[in-house]
Amino acid sequence: MAGLLKRFRQSYFLYSFLRDPVAVTSFALFVILAASALLAPVIAPHNPFDGANIDIMDAETPPLWKDGGNPEFLLGTDNQGRDLFSAILYGMRVSLLIGVGAVAMQACIGIMVGLLSGYGSRRLDNILMRIADVQLSFSSYMVAIFLGAIVQMTFGVGRYEQVAVPFLVLVIGLAEWPQYARTVRASVLAEKKKEYVEAARVIGLRPFRIMWRHILPNTLTPVLVISTVQVANAIMSEAALSFLGLGMPVTKPSLGSLIKSGFQYFFSGSWWITLFPGVVLILLVLSINLLGDWLRDFLNPKLYKD
């Protein structure tokens, strides 16, 4: 273990990471955001979901530094009197959970399909890739509207709150798996021509074993790269769906539904209810995207100029 740590400290990965200020900054930002989201129950001064804690009298308190600010509510409160700072922390938790969950689902389906499609026969490849094309031609909003109607019908609007997170994971996961499938398929096609795969076939290994043991590990680099971008995209998709009212209910808000809930008060002067969750959302997505860019450049040295 100590040896591993030492190797990591001397690795080229760490070295080039530390030399890139953008990467370091965005990594630091991401770690702060993710940590405060995960530790929300510990850090947050209030529990925004505990009805007993909320006083409607506190509604629309401006941030601390404005006139009428209350030291108890750092970033002010929303229209129901919830502490905005706490709500953002909890909301970010939901957003991240959905983002990571959806990407995990996309990756599972996409890697499977990509492997089968790239390594299987030409006919199987054709079938799977046409399905992926069809899937891609539906936007995630259409999938959400369609599935949303079904889910709300089966569970009833009241219980929707409980199934909202898995539902959004499913919707966003289903909508975007073709990205993974295509990436994986492309690198499987490249890997399968390499001689180590032929060597495995000469040994007599079964196709599934060759796919899992030999090809898959060699296709994971591009998967890692698109995963970062996809997490950012999934968080954005979730925010958009919630903003349109197709996502998280306001009772269990994500960043998107916080933005939505404050939006109608934006022009009546309570701009903070929308602005702060919005800024946090942008910072979160930006930091992930910048990290993803750096990772892509690092893993693909051909892109380096000079």
Partner: peptide, 16 residues
């Protein structure tokens, strides 16, 4: 029957 390949860089799985 076994085979030995040309490219010493591509014929061994880099992740094993």
């Amino acid at each position: 029957m076994q085979m030995v390949f040309q490219d010493p860089y591509a014929s061994l799985n880099p992740r094993m």
